[in-house]
């Protein structure tokens, strides 16, 4: 079986978001980088599927040169090989991203065979576009189920579970298929030191797709106004309990 996972490098913001002066990006001078927890679950699932069924897993990202870090992180978690689409720095909109990924999948499949499954996050951590996986599925003419919290291979397809109010909805789709997943699908493991070292030596193929015209054009970013106050300190330690209960009463919950 062949499986692909698509991930996006994003800054790991802490308690407060600070923008660059031109308000085009988050100021990342003091930040580390990561991927969405949804995509981490995609990586974990892909690695487990290949361990169980044999075959090959591949991770793909469209991003700046530094995004190689996220590809190596994925390989440390058990992915065999990486494809890096160089975005030459800037973020691409959902349509342009989907087109670049679709073309890369076509090229990769022509060389090495069809991917039975392609994993996407339900939404990217930063842009939250809710669309790249669906657009790729449409372009490739493949069935797609979104927001999965459960997946199981059944014959030549997959059974997919989605969390909905009151329970879970089930879909069954044949390979080759596209799925978008959410955190909670599985509990990703931490990479071992030998796996991290091995990942440094694993192959990363690079391509530079042409950047399409942006049709959802970002003008600027804005940090929403905070509540603009600091918390009222009710006290220190257990001695604060009495004040806390007074407040709970005022709110009407105690």
């Amino acid at each position: 079986m062949r499986v692909l996972v698509c991930v996006k490098r994003v800054p790991m913001t802490g308690g407060r978001i600070v923008l660059t002066e031109d308000a085009q990006e988050i100021d990342t001078a003091h930040l580390g980088f990561t991927i969405s927890p949804h995509e981490e679950c995609g990586i974990e699932e892909a690695a487990r599927l290949i361990e169980a069924h044999g075959g090959e897993s591949v991770v793909l990202t469209l991003g700046a040169a530094e995004a190689e870090e996220q590809l190596r992180d994925a390989m440390a978690l058990g992915i065999d090989r990486a494809l890096h689409l160089d975005s030459e720095g800037s973020e691409w909109d959902g349509q342009a991203t989907a087109e670049a990924i679709t073309n890369a999948i076509r090229a990769e499949e022509a060389a090495s065979g069809t991917f039975d499954l392609v994993f996407f996050g339900n939404e990217s951590a930063d842009a939250g576009g809710f669309q790249v996986g669906i657009r790729v599925a449409h372009a490739l003419g493949r069935p797609c189920v979104t927001g999965l919290k459960g997946i199981a291979v059944e014959g030549s397809g997959v059974r997919c579970e989605q969390e909905v109010p009151g329970g879970r909805d089930v879909y069954r789709i044949p390979f080759p298929a596209i799925v978008t997943v959410k955190e909670g699908l599985n509990l990703p493991h931490y990479p071992s030191v030998p796996a991290k070292l091995r990942a440094q030596r694993q192959p990363v193929d690079t391509a530079t797709p042409a950047r399409q015209e942006q049709r959802l054009r970002k003008l600027r970013l804005v940090v929403p106004e905070s509540r603009g106050k600091r918390a009222e300190v009710l006290g220190e330690g257990p001695a604060a309990a009495e004040r806390v209960v007074e407040v709970l009463r005022e709110i009407g919950v105690a």
């Binding site: 802490g14 308690g15 407060r16 905070s226 509540r227 106050k229 600091r230 918390a231 009222e232 300190v233 009710l234 006290g235 220190e236 330690g237 257990p238 604060a240 309990a241 806390v244 407040v247």
Partner: peptide
């Protein structure tokens, strides 16, 4: 950081508070 979005705070060890 949570102090900037909280309305109320108790400073202390949750295991006691």
């Amino acid at each position: 950081s949570i102090m900037a979005s909280a309305d109320y705070a108790v400073i202390g060890d949750l295991r006691e508070v």
